[in-house]
Design a protein around this nucleic acid. Structure first.
Lengths: 214, 214
DNA sequence: CCGGATCCCCAGGGATACTG
DNA sequence: CAGTATCCCTGGGGATCCGG
């Protein structure tokens, strides 16, 4: 990117992360930790492949991303955030906090992927019953499976599959996302095609609060 | 800007504020409150005038900026942030926090303007002696005058001139900025061309702390 | 299949001139 | 003062192709 050439923290920051797609690449890496090139492409629908490669080079040069060679039998390049890169999480959180109202006006053509639930759950998720034993919820949608665990007062979510979940939610990604974030209840989600198998009360443990000021 | 088309708070936010120059326009409006078109242009060296006009239109349409007609004898258009626009301050703060280290590597061609001190003073400034009577410091550089006041534990700064300052700092903008932010002491600043007239101990009242995690 | 590189085309940004 | 109009050029979108 062309530098703004200003002695100002905001301008200097935007020199590094102000380019199109850059912060969304960081988002994907915050969600997935270590990440293949193809994972990034799938999580960034519409990005041109040359652009992704160029951004990754720039991010590596800026000390935000580092690459490593995975050992066989994987034998592929993995991309990962440096500590300086992980320090961008508050920036993404601030943008997300601010944009919460905009999230209501979702366009019909907008895409949704299940793993995008990870950051909102990390930022706003609480365990409603901290003293109860923890519960595990498995999301099974058309794209990647997501594993959610609530216990000890906090909520964690990651891409992948749980060994023995208390509750499995199967169906289209969008309604499952709205159910997990507490925007619809289970009855309404069922009419939208969501199937729940197991301990449905586990959903009560997920408490997703509103961002500050929203 | 072209929308990312993703059901994700970060992406939705970037749809509105991810364009080049946009957040720097917001920065200028956070510094100055009400602002003429020409003030914005001076504070954004290098921006194309058509681009500034276009961004202001987009920001107004997004409910971030509003325009008002100043009454005579000023008789000009003023730009101001809406409440939704002022809510972007934490986003700028998060970027500034993150970019603090980058601010050390300033290029020689980079420009600096005195009023850019307002946000760092607002974010990181503390009054070192909350119980003492407040002090007023006037900055007089080649560009606009800046008025700083420290008292009651906090620091405020705004563009403009004080009636009877306790201390007046005159000289080139860059060294004055570094002095106010505590990056050089008064002796070193003097060798860089800064003149101090009045109660020089007033500078001790300014305490500019480091951002979280930096 | 993974990790890109290459090519073409268009939209968005930069610089300058001009106008109500 | 507050923009519009214009021209040019770079950066981004989209597709295809290529080496490992």
């Amino acid at each position: 990117m062309r530098s703004y050439g200003q002695v100002c923290g905001v301008a200097k920051g935007l020199d590094l992360i102000g380019d199109r797609w850059t912060l969304l690449i960081v988002r994907e890496l915050l969600i997935r930790d270590a990440c293949r090139y193809t994972d990034l492409r799938k999580g960034l629908p519409g990005i041109a492949t040359n652009l992704l490669a160029q951004r990754l080079r720039e991010l590596e040069q800026a000390g935000i991303v580092l690459t490593e060679q995975a050992p066989p039998p994987v034998a592929t390049t993995l991309f990962r955030l440096t500590e300086h890169g992980r320090a961008l999480e508050p920036v993404l959180k601030a943008i997300g906090d601010w944009a919460r109202p905009q999230l209501a006006e979702v366009d019909e053509g907008d895409t949704f992927q299940t793993h995008w639930l990870v950051l909102p759950l990390r930022f706003y998720g609480e365990d409603a019953e901290p003293d109860e034993p923890s519960v595990r919820i498995q999301l099974d949608t058309e794209d990647e499976p997501l594993a959610i665990e609530a216990g000890g007062g906090s909520v964690t979510a990651r891409v992948g599959r749980l060994a023995d979940p208390d509750l499995v939610l199967t169906g289209p990604a969008r309604p499952i996302g709205r159910l997990v974030l507490g925007r619809v209840d289970l009855d309404e989600a069922r009419t939208l095609g969501v199937e729940a198998k197991g301990e449905v009360t586990a959903l009560q443990r997920l408490n997703v609060r509103a961002p500050p000021g929203g």
